[in-house]
């Protein structure tokens, strides 16, 4: 029930931000369409912890996001240097990383790996993530497990 109401509130605020109308008639119509979508979602049985995680610690989440943005900027510059270098110094590598945690943590981990240029998560199976890296350095940096520790800190006791 809590998740259904929060989904309704989220949908309605997105509708309000995208439309920008405040007339009563349009507000009622928007609210009705949000209710219709929530009804479809409940009927499809997709309102669960997977579609809509409420229990993340907001401050830790914000700190992790800022750290991830820093990592994205660093690896972007690294990949750009490799592409503009006439000799094309790439060393493609495939590694397997351990990822033993709840599914939400695995999703955040795999998405963060793919979001940083230079590393792409290919497969997630049996608590292991297969990663393709553009350079051996990027693969070694992931193997050091800095990102894994930070994600475990984000999803801890939630």
């Amino acid at each position: 029930m809590r998740k259904t109401i929060s989904l309704l509130v989220l949908l309605f605020s997105i509708w309000l931000l995208l439309s920008g109308h405040l007339e009563p008639l349009l507000l009622i119509l928007g609210g009705l369409s949000c209710l219709f979508i929530v009804w479809i979602a409940v009927r499809q049985d997709v309102v669960d912890h997977e579609g809509h995680p409420l229990n993340l610690h907001p401050l830790r989440w914000l700190r992790y996001s800022l750290w991830l943005i820093g990592e994205i900027v660093k690896s972007n510059i690294d990949v750009a240097k490799r592409i503009w270098n006439p000799k094309l110094p790439i060393t493609p590598t495939v590694t397997v990383l351990p990822a033993e945690m709840i599914d939400l943590g695995q999703v955040i981990y795999a998405n963060s790996i793919t979001l940083t240029p230079g590393t792409v998560s290919i497969d997630v199976q049996d608590n292991r993530i297969t990663v393709h890296a553009l350079s051996r350095d990027a693969a070694e940096q992931l193997q050091r497990g800095d990102m894994l520790r930070r994600i475990q800190h984000v999803i801890k006791e939630s």
């Binding site: 972007n76 750009a80 790439i90 240029p117």
Partner: peptide, 28 residues
Amino acid sequence: FVITGGIGILRLPDFFTRLHAVSMPDTL
């Protein structure tokens, strides 16, 4: 960064390395 991604998608030798070039304009 967008142009670098475009150059990378042409220059890099195989499909998996091209994935990295595409994720660069998609993020930064």
